[in-house]
Design a protein around this nucleic acid. Structure first.
Ligand code: MN
Ligand code: MN
Ligand code: ZN
Ligand code: ZN
Lengths: 118, 118
DNA sequence: TAAGGAGTGCAATGCCATTGCAAAGTTTAG
DNA sequence: CTAAACTTTGCAATGGCATTGCACTCCTTA
């Protein structure tokens, strides 16, 4: 299962939800896929993305990803095709925070229309 | 109920979850407060914030808020006190998107330590 | 070949958001 | 003042998603 999921994630250039994988691998149980993704997270193979869709999305990490503020990039949710993309070349600009606020992590999501739906 | 919730929201300078309000107004039903907030949203009194905590947070809009890309600001979740703040003076910088991507809305959340928890 | 460990399926649990329906409360026209 | 019409509320149920205990199956290794 891990090999199958990993391969599929590598073939996609976008972030997938547990449910999408569940549908794809219909012979495998939800919990198995869930644990697969959990294992991947624990080993920094994937990062989880909260795109506000209600379901968490998972996407492959880059080789140097450690999933902290450093390597964070913007994510994009297309409101037409409902697909979520990692904009790996669009780093998150960290703004100046009010006095006394310290940032540890950032989640920057943009909603709009993706290039294939334009 | 609307008056009570509105007043409480005005007194706070932060975003609150349905559950927090439920606990506060223990004599009112969850669904009543839910509908109250829904009414507020429909009339642009509050905006909803997805801070990744699992529960949606609600905060008062500014007078000129129309809850689109224009008036959007960054939100901050303190991982210590679990409170979410609107950083109304910290607008979201919109980055250059890849070719063909068009932005309609943005959600920029920063996690860290707030000024009172420092 | 059998014991120990790893992976899997099933079913249950626990949030949280949302809604149908009926009861209670309020407004308004007669 | 009274009843119809409309609004607000409470209760209970539903649905989606994440997560987990437990038992069973499968694989590795001594
Ligand atoms: Mn990503
Ligand atoms: Mn806000
Ligand atoms: Zn699209
Ligand atoms: Zn704090």
């Amino acid at each position: 299962m891990r090999l199958l999921v990993l391969q599929y994630l590598m073939e996609q250039n976008r972030a997938l939800s547990l449910n999408e994988l569940e549908v794809l691998f219909e012979n495998a149980d939800k919990s198995t896929i869930f644990r697969t993704l959990k294992t991947f997270q624990e080993n920094y193979l994937v990062h989880r993305i909260n795109d506000g869709s209600g379901a968490i999305k998972y996407a492959l990490c880059d080789d140097d990803c450690i999933c902290s503020l450093e390597d964070n990039h913007i994510h994009f949710l297309c409101t037409k095709c409902e697909k979520t993309y990692c904009l790996k070349d669009t780093p998150i600009a960290t703004p100046n925070l009010p006095n006394g606020f310290r940032a540890n992590f950032a989640n920057y999501l943009i909603e709009g229309i993706c290039s294939t739906c334009t």
